[in-house]
Nucleic acid binder design. Structure first.
Length: 414
DNA sequence: TCTGGGGTCCTCAGACGA
DNA sequence: TCTGTCGTCTGAGGACCC
């Protein structure tokens, strides 16, 4: 079972593909800076509070991995090259790769910039052949390597792509089958000996709980009485895990899923201790979230403030408005209102603003609050037009000073 | 060791109305 | 009228993913 298999064999293929780019951010950087090829490279925040977002296989050979603090990555691999990252560029490359995937089937569900599920049940050719074709075309057109998992269900396809990836060595990626298939009918046998941590949705907390009831393999989880499992990890989570362990995953591939929330957050190089400093940041973050809402033609009703203190404890405070808003001014006002109820004297390392309960800003009855918001709507649109024409830096909120009648007007930077 | 940023989903508790 | 129950909504937080 597994690996690249020709269709002449007897087993039947599943029609779900999971495509996963290899070290995506780093690969994109190495394309525009070929001198970085073959070197240990990481993309991420290089500062004292930064973490690794993506690491080259050469860096991984030293034990560096994503989400690792930059300080630790440097300790493990002193010669590592840290790059700040260019999200705009990654977005553009990702969109071109997704277009390649859509040339094989319209049923493409992006999971993030660098991975996607495909349903190729209606496509021409066998799923394994399609997997190889996708790898070829992504490599030829974009210079990026990717791994493909083929299975009957999403969870197994995702596990397959993980197993198709090369191994990290100091000399770079080594081996890797490229396309890994879990044939239909062999799922349970494939899963049974694997560690339970291979299940999508089992992180450190769940792993510890499962360990506490003597479960370490997926096979053990599959045989465990559901009622006892649910008592330990909760009903919904228990059912989900039990199903996955038994290779049951009815989730379809859904293209074009609408976002459910949008947020922006920022970690400071040093903790901030006053509402004034934090309020100024909230204005900028709110403006950014609102701008993205408008460009997606969405508006949200629930505003959430996130505060992480110096000791890493995190709280959220939220408020649901009468109607959806997409104005940075209104978001900032609500976020500041929520912040006023938080004691920040101990020091804040991160602050964030999020909006959920998203909908299209359509017809609805306007409240007095809405009318006030609407008066800023035209201003926000004008700002969008200026940024569209002259770039995102062309105009910024005056929230840093937080002065003026509205507590954060628009300024043109010098 | 010391933990970014942007998401999704789930659980739990309290308020509230039927 | 009072009390208990149930469902729903909202808010807060945890866990997980890339």
């Amino acid at each position: 079972m597994g690996g690249s298999r020709s269709d002449s064999e007897q087993t039947r293929s599943g029609s779900i593909l999971h495509v996963d780019m290899d070290a995506f951010f780093v690969s994109v950087e190495q394309l525009r800076r070929p001198e970085l090829k073959g070197l240990p490279v990481a993309v991420g925040g290089p500062g004292s509070r930064g973490v690794v977002a993506s690491a080259s296989y050469e860096a991984r050979a030293f034990g560096v991995h994503s989400a690792m603090p930059a300080v630790r990555a440097r300790r493990l691999c002193p010669e590592i090259v840290f790059l700040p990252g260019d999200h705009q560029l990654y977005q553009e490359v990702s969109e071109r790769i997704m277009a390649i995937l859509r040339s094989f089937t319209p049923l493409v569900e992006p999971l993030s910039l660098d991975e996607a599920f495909l349903d190729v049940s209606g496509a021409r050719g066998s799923p394994v052949e399609i997997g190889h074709s996708i790898r070829r075309q992504v490599r030829d057109d974009e210079g990026i390597n990717c791994a493909v998992g083929v299975a009957a269900v999403k969870f197994l396809a995702k596990l397959g792509s993980k197993l198709a990836k090369p191994e990290p060595t100091p000399q770079g990626p080594s081996g890797g089958v490229g396309v890994f298939e879990v044939p239909v009918g062999e799922e349970r046998a494939f899963l049974s000996p694997r560690p339970v941590g291979d299940i999508w949705g089992v992180g450190p907390a769940t792993l510890a709980r499962l360990d506490g009831i003597g479960i370490s393999t997926i096979g053990e989880l599959a045989e465990f009485p559901f009622e006892r499992l649910a008592a330990v990890v909760g009903n919904a989570h228990g059912k989900h895990l039990h199903d996955l362990a038994n290779a049951v995953d009815p989730r379809p591939v859904i293209p074009n899923t609408a976002p459910k929330s949008m947020s922006r957050e920022q970690t400071f190089p040093r903790d901030l201790h006053t509402h004034e400093e934090l309020g100024a940041v909230l204005v900028a973050l709110s403006d950014s979230v609102a701008s993205r809402l408008r460009s997606s033609e969405l508006a949200g009703r629930t505003v959430t403030l996130k505060v992480r203190f110096g000791d890493f404890t995190t709280i959220t405070r939220s408020h649901t408005l009468a109607g959806p808003v997409d104005s940075g001014v209104v978001l900032a006002r609500e976020a500041k209102r929520l912040l006023e109820e938080v004691d920040v004297a101990a020091g804040v390392r991160l602050i964030g603003v999020g909006v959920s309960e998203l909908e299209e800003p359509g017809q609805r009855q306007l409240s007095l609050e809405d009318v006030q918001a609407t008066s800023w709507h035209d201003v926000d649109r004008a700002v969008d037009r200026i940024r569209g024409r002259f770039g995102s830096e062309a105009i910024q909120t005056g929230g840093a000073s937080d002065t003026g009648p509205r507590g954060g007007g628009w300024i043109r930077p010098n």
